[in-house]
């Protein structure tokens, strides 16, 4: 039986009725057309579906949309984070792009907590997100680069 739910998605309140069994990722993709968040395993292993829930990374396949009611969700489409995105481009931190939204969300979560992360911190932060293309090296570089630039930006801005 569909139930009403209101979620703030990328800063916009979305109200809809939804079957309880619809996961947050399916809600984002199928109802809202936000296809930037990807589905890889639907059991919480690959991390491709990661989004920010009230600012922290979670797996949107392990959350029914109704559970996100009255909470705030940020997807890759809503990542207002030019420095981070630019760093991913600069180091070519992707190939096929499928895990990229999950990596960006993981990176955002890390950098919000840890502005000056070590390589180990970065690897730990992205260890819940599988990438099959890159071997992670250029992703680690991108996040380190973004961290440096964000710190500089903080100082100068």
């Amino acid at each position: 039986m569909p139930v009403p739910v209101t979620i703030s998605v990328n800063g916009r309140a979305v109200s809809d009725t939804v079957e309880p069994r619809v996961t947050l990722v399916d809600f984002l993709r199928d109802r809202l057309g936000l296809t930037g968040t990807h589905v890889g395993c639907e059991q919480g292993v690959c991390g491709a579906c990661s989004v920010l829930l009230d600012g922290v990374p979670v797996r949107s396949c392990l959350l029914f949309a109704v559970q996100a009611g009255n909470r705030s969700v940020t997807t890759v489409e809503g990542l207002d984070d030019a420095i981070l995105l630019d760093a991913f481009e600069e180091t070519h931190a992707m190939q096929c792009g499928y895990c990229t939204p999950g990596m960006l969300i993981a990176a955002r979560g890390l950098l919000s907590d840890t502005p000056d992360p070590s390589e180990d911190d970065i690897r730990e932060a992205i260890s819940g997100t599988l990438c099959r293309c890159t071997g992670y090296v250029q992703i680690v570089e991108a996040i380190a680069l973004a961290a440096t630039r964000l710190r500089q930006d903080e100082r100068h801005g």
């Binding site: 489409e77 995105l85 991913f88 481009e89 792009g97």
Partner: peptide, 9 residues
């Protein structure tokens, strides 16, 4: 890469 980082692949 641009489309992938912006979620528009």
């Amino acid at each position: 890469d641009r489309r992938f980082v912006t979620g528009t692949g």
